[in-house]
Amino acid sequence: MSLKQRITELIAETGPIPVSQYMALCLFDPADGYYTTREPFGAKGDFTTAPEISQMFGELAAVWLASAWQAAGAPQDAILAEIGPGRGTLARDMLRTLARIAPDLTRRVALIETSPRLTAIQKETLGATSATWHRDIGELPGAPLFIVGNELFDAIPIRQFVKTPQGWRERCVGLDADGALTFVAGPGTTDAALPDAPNGAIFEIAPARNALMQEIAERIARDGGAGLFIDYGHLQTGVGDTLQAMRAHAHVDVLATPGEADLTSHVDFAALGAAAGAGRLETRAMTQARFLLGMGLLERAGQLGAGGDAGLRERLRGEVERLAGPDEMGELFKVLMVGKDLANLPPQ
């Protein structure tokens, strides 16, 4: 029985399910979930992440982490961690760079991953390594933590609320008259303060995302360290439906193929920053373009292209455009830095 059939039967038996539950089933169902059964990354998958586009992304992330580590006094017991490492491409590029500029930061490397299938791919990507794998951040030993997460928070399920004449109601997935999946307004509401908006408006909250960020922040506040998180989303909280599905690098109907398409939503960086602030950390947020250009993206592309042929320089130009161009990832993707003291960290 397909995941779609199982979800349909569940709704028929119990009634509409919240969007957050639908997302969790589609992405993480042990038998048919998207991340438990599929290879989502790269040209042959459903989407391409920044580390897959260019080695420069991981190199510049490594430079930032090395700067944060040095600003903290270069603690020798520090843990370098990536949470949600995908295929391990970002970790590989960061470790290669750090081996040159801050080798002591690579003494204790941890990857936080819940998928056994992806863990196996990451181990193959990284090859011989002393890195350790963990299912959650709580498994890491107490030590200064320098952590990065790329396209992590967008895949954590959200709750949606729809404005009705009776007020805000939780948006759910139910069945229409023909038994097909459809969005409905459920009976549930929330104690959270929701904005004034016209009927039909959608507002998203992400308590699971905020809880994870607060856990990371409290850990850094206690033991020291810093965090760098990159995702697509918005810097200011706003009204709107951002739930989307990607399959074969194209947008598809969110309800059409449960478990066969990647479900994500835009990250509310204002809310994430507030969660980190609740964990007693400083935060800085900016566009990916500002971050990468400020970290030296153009200069690094020039170094890689020096002495190369026209084909190499054109490829690098294309990578820079995809990573930082205003019509590509540069403005859509945002960067959140968290730490005890960010004042002297790049980019300035």
Rank of each mutant, 00 (worst) to 15 (best):
L3E: 10
R6G: 03
E13L: 14
T14N: 15
P16D: 05
F28D: 08
P30L: 11
T36H: 08
T37I: 03
R38V: 03
R38D: 04
E39S: 13
P40S: 11
D46H: 08
T49M: 05
I53G: 03
S54V: 04
M56Q: 01
L60S: 07
A61F: 07
L65Q: 05
A66C: 09
W69M: 02
A72E: 13
E82N: 09
I83C: 11
A91T: 14
R96K: 14
R96H: 10
T97H: 04
T97P: 01
L98H: 01
L111R: 00
P116W: 06
E124S: 10
G127I: 08
G127D: 07
L152Q: 00
I156M: 09
I158C: 02
K163I: 00
T164Y: 07
T164E: 11
G167S: 09
G174K: 08
P187V: 10
P187Q: 10
A193Q: 14
P195R: 07
D196H: 12
N199L: 01
A201E: 07
F203M: 04
I205K: 00
I205G: 00
A206K: 01
P207N: 09
A211L: 08
L212Y: 05
M213E: 00
Q214H: 06
R222L: 12
G233M: 06
H234L: 08
G238H: 14
G240D: 08
D241A: 02
L243D: 01
H249A: 09
V254P: 06
T264V: 10
V267M: 06
D268M: 12
A270P: 01
A274W: 05
A274Q: 15
G277K: 10
A278M: 11
A278S: 12
T287L: 01
Q288A: 05
L293N: 13
M295L: 13
L298K: 12
Q303H: 12
G305Y: 06
G305N: 03
G307D: 09
D309V: 10
G311L: 13
G311R: 11
L312W: 09
R315H: 10
R315N: 04
L316K: 03
V320D: 00
E321R: 15
M329Y: 02
L332K: 13
K340R: 15
D341P: 02
L345N: 02
Q348A: 14
